[in-house]
Nucleic acid binder design. Structure first.
Lengths: 233, 233
DNA sequence: AGGGTTATTATGTGCGTACATATTATACTT
DNA sequence: AAGTATAATATGTACGCACATAATAACCCT
């Protein structure tokens, strides 16, 4: 055994992943316990623990106290999807960002918004619609409802300069949220706004955010034709 | 200072997150160094380190050696998206899973597939099309190319029983992959297959997977109308 | 000033020990 | 046989220490 010692958690991580990929350890199979691996690889148990922990959160391993560690049977792969502010998303692609406010008015929320955000039908809300541009061309149409109670100072913000999207990120951080992707047919107004044919297939993102079970905002983001959301696995 | 001591990393994590949310520590601001926080909260530096590390990977903090730790200015929120095998996705929703193979034949790959997977135009590939059903109704149409060199034994698999999707997960684990979401108009054949109107907006997922820069498979998954992909932020 | 070298410093990580906790296996009771 | 208390065990984590590493600050020389 002239095995070079793996004394850092990264190399242990890689070695374990290698054994999983080469099927040396098969799906469902139990792998050696931490102390055994530690002595085999020539490092401390804490180091092995760190490596296996990362692999478990990544979905490659199932770990349970006393029961030990085994290779995940059906590895539920997790796609990681970065969600920057729209402006940074566009600028990051080397394009020029543009923004134009279409409307901003206080109004009572329609019924479905109440349900989504968990607010009362007579709540004081801000309804904002705007268009985001990339290199001068329509990129995304934003239709957003904001609970003013959750972010009072947005009433004073000049939303013709900074988008509600970006204002909220800066001033009303959320604790958690939901996001849903789907495909819709362009309505007449959306088609006109985004320069698409009527009934053209458009990519839709719906985003709802809360701060401690207190609804902040619901946004309906309709993208120009051809939009792709990409992600690494 | 009768502060109760936070002696586990979870509580330190929560406390730091609280200070970020309450704006006690503002975006861009530098937070106390690990040793200071440790003595303030009454725990070891390693404990603080663990908590801050998790917050950094979650995107709330920016950490750099010597420069210290500061609250992220534009928190790039990360959407986590679980990608189970289609069968489990459907069964997990309490529906009955069905599967029917449409075609499976060896063929030379079209030009665009070569580019995506990085294989030669004369490569030996398997072209599989199939339909996945939920409660007997069309759910998703799968159009897949598999590099036989990357998974030779798939030539012997009975793809009328197990879907190529599931077979590959079990027998040809990948090291990394790409996934793209978009909206398309249903082609005539897709419309018929999925029970949709021609040109109806359909949700499309394209998935490409590699094993160590060696292309394995490219899949084009077209979903029945109304499909939504949901994710938590 | 300018450019390059050297100290300083905050985070990153490894190690050994100790104890906590969840879960399983075993022994025991009825 | 069934249920219940008890022991055994693998992982989870806290701690203190040491050293590695990267980035900045200070210094020095010309």
């Amino acid at each position: 055994m002239s095995t070079t010692e793996l004394t850092n958690w990264q190399s242990v991580h890689d070695e374990v992943l290698r054994r999983i990929h080469t099927r040396e350890w098969k799906p469902g199979q139990q792998i050696p316990k931490e102390v055994e691996l530690a002595s085999e690889l020539g490092c401390a148990r804490a180091t092995v623990n760190r490596a296996l922990r990362e692999l478990a959160t990544a979905g490659f391993l199932d770990r349970r106290r006393k029961a030990g560690t085994r290779v995940t049977l059906h590895p539920v792969r997790k796609a990681k999807l970065d969600i920057p502010v729209i402006r940074l998303e566009i600028e990051g692609r080397g394009q020029r960002y543009g923004y134009s406010l279409i409307s901003a008015e206080r109004a009572a929320p329609p019924h479905d918004i109440c349900g989504r955000l968990g607010v009362l039908p007579d709540a004081d809300m801000l309804h904002v619609t705007s268009l985001h541009l990339a290199d001068g061309k329509p990129y995304m149409f934003e239709n957003r409802w904001v609970a003013i109670a959750a972010a009072p100072s947005i009433a004073d913000a000049d939303l013709s300069i900074i988008s509600a999207n970006e204002w909220l990120v800066l001033h009303a951080p959320y604790t958690h949220g939901e996001m849903a992707f789907s495909a819709i047919a362009a309505s007449n107004s959306e088609a006109e706004m985004l320069g698409a044919a009527p009934h053209a297939p458009l990519f839709l993102i719906e985003r709802t955010t809360w701060e401690n079970d207190h609804g902040i905002t619901y946004a309906r983001l309709v993208f120009a034709p051809g939009h792709r959301v990409q992600s690494v696995i």
